[in-house]
């Protein structure tokens, strides 16, 4: 694998490929803003989870883009989502085109969650004989889920708590994307504060303070709250690096390490 790709994986604590899956179980929050979007982190995680070396199952709840969008991007990265979907390793829940007049969409999310999530995950796990903890639930993105819930952040929080029980019950990882700048002008942004509190890893994508350049697209700050550094010691690890997004990969590098 490209060495530069590993900078994000290292920061996430995922660099050790043969580690016990239960150790990599985490709740990951990705935050971005209008100027710099962090969708590429989602793509990276999908590709990583669906790589031939991994046996993970990915459940993707898409509020932002249709399936074709993700499929074309991942295809350029060398991952065929259609094949993975047919093999039941990639479960795509298209919430963008789902319209149900008269019924709040959040109710449908809940129903979907209870029916699809669990049944599909169980089926797929049996099919693939997966170990517990080898599945990944991704939501793109939480702010649109709020729109689907008609602005009721309590409903969204309930759902997130429900998802969190999945992590303990089924041992899967959760990845949420949200837009940080939406909440910056709010007095009490309960939703984002609770999400940040629950998350074990927070990835924040921001533009460079000096403005965008053609060769640096922004910077990532990865805050890993639960790094086990030796026996019984926990510490928060912060990493900051720049990135450049390409069609088939993303280059990560430390500031100043490029001429």
């Amino acid at each position: 694998m490209d060495r530069s790709l590993n900078l994000l994986d290292e920061a996430l604590g995922l660099d050790n490929g043969d580690s016990n899956p239960s150790e990599t179980r985490l709740l990951l929050l990705i935050e971005d803003c209008v100027e710099t979007s962090a969708y590429f982190v989602l793509h990276h995680l999908i590709k990583r989870s669906l790589s031939p070396h991994s046996s993970a199952l990915v459940v993707f709840v898409a509020f932002a883009q249709p399936f074709s969008h993700y499929d074309r991007i991942l295809r350029k990265m060398g991952c065929n989502l259609v094949v993975q979907r047919d093999n039941k390793r990639f479960l795509f829940l298209d919430m963008l085109t789902l319209e149900c007049p008269g019924e709040p969409q959040m109710e449908m999310v809940k129903k979907l969650a209870k029916v699809d999530f669990l049944i599909c995950m169980e089926k797929s796990r049996k099919l693939w004989r997966l170990e517990p903890g080898a599945s990944l639930v991704m939501i793109d993105d939480i702010s649109l889920m709020e729109v689907a819930a008609n602005g009721s952040s309590n409903h969204v929080l309930d759902f997130l708590h429900y998802c969190q029980t999945l992590t303990t019950e089924f041992g899967c990882s959760l990845v949420f994307l949200n837009h940080k700048d939406i909440y910056s002008s709010m007095e009490r942004p309960t939703l984002i504060l609770q999400m940040e509190y629950l998350a074990e890893v927070i990835i924040r994508a921001e533009p460079l303070a000096t403005g965008l350049a053609a060769d640096v697209h922004g910077q990532l700050t990865v805050m890993n709250k639960g790094i086990c550094d030796g026996p019984r010691t926990l510490q928060t690890k912060m990493c900051n690096f720049h990135f450049r997004i390409k069609e088939n990969c993303v280059e990560y590098f430390y500031p100043g390490s490029r001429t």
Partner: peptide, 8 residues
């Protein structure tokens, strides 16, 4: 659309 590369 259908790409992850931002337009700079």
């Amino acid at each position: 659309l259908n790409t992850q590369v931002p337009v700079i």
